[in-house]
Design a protein around this nucleic acid. Structure first.
Length: 224
DNA sequence: CACTAGATTTTCT
DNA sequence: GAAAATCTAGTGG
């Protein structure tokens, strides 16, 4: 099947079987692929993420233990955790850590990758915007544009089905800062983003610059 | 550009 | 009853 082999292959489950603060920076630059039917794919580069830890992270949904909503967080790695935010929006996370240990990475922004005009229209219809850079920017907005609902909670993102994560080139640098919109553990530097992307909303609030390559990110020296 | 109000699910007090 | 991992539409500079 030529169409099957043309699909970007998913990242392996082992990639996600690590602490979320390690998976998060390594997810930057990877592709989120959405099968929208009839062989068409809508895809975006991951440019902004946040790590949420387990029982030791007061800002995480897993902090108070398993519940009906967050069960996916305690399951195997590489699965979609989709929750409803403020009663209105859906937000997409990827579960990390081996089964039994909670942790996830919130996908906050994507930069649209080249796609067919039909796929672009499909995104625009789901989440209309005049500013193309904002099409997949923001955790609620990207779920709306990609038609990802709570019903997709638990979906395996390491299988090339409806939604999966595929390998893409790492960004040249990464900025690290506090997570957005939380009050507890608000000081932890667990938000990672690609400073070179226009799809990232808040470039201003960052603490640290990382350079290097995946698995080997290190703080940039002066003048870097 | 900055700021504000309002929508309304899930969880906890 | 209130807060929360948010977004949009509205106002005003």
């Amino acid at each position: 099947m030529p169409q099957r082999s043309a699909l970007p292959p998913p990242l392996p489950r082992a990639f996600f079987a690590r602490p979320p603060e390690q998976v998060a920076p390594d997810l930057l630059g990877q592709w989120l692929c959405r099968n929208i039917g009839k062989g068409a794919i809508a895809a975006g580069r991951i440019v902004e993420v946040e790590a949420y830890q387990g029982r030791d992270d007061p800002a995480a949904h897993a902090f108070r233990g398993p519940s009906l909503r967050n069960a996916t967080l305690f399951g195997p790695p590489g699965h979609a955790y989709v929750y409803t935010s403020y009663g209105v929006h859906q937000c997409l996370n990827v579960s990390t850590q081996p089964a039994g240990q909670a942790g996830c990475v919130l996908i906050r922004a994507l930069e649209p990758l080249p796609m067919t005009p039909a796929a672009e229209r499909w995104l625009q219809t789901n989440a209309p915007t005049a500013d193309g850079r904002k099409l997949l920017s923001g955790p609620g907005r990207l779920c709306r544009a990609l038609a990802i609902s709570r019903a997709w909670d638990g979906l395996d993102l390491t299988m090339p089905g409806r939604l999966w994560v595929a390998a893409g080139p790492a960004p040249r640098a990464i900025h690290v800062g506090p997570r957005v919109g939380i009050t507890r553990a608000a000081e932890r530097p667990l938000r990672f983003f690609d400073p070179g992307s226009a799809a990232v909303s808040a470039h201003h609030h960052w603490q640290t610059r990382l350079v290097g390559q995946r698995g080997h990110w290190r703080p940039a020296g002066p003048g870097g």
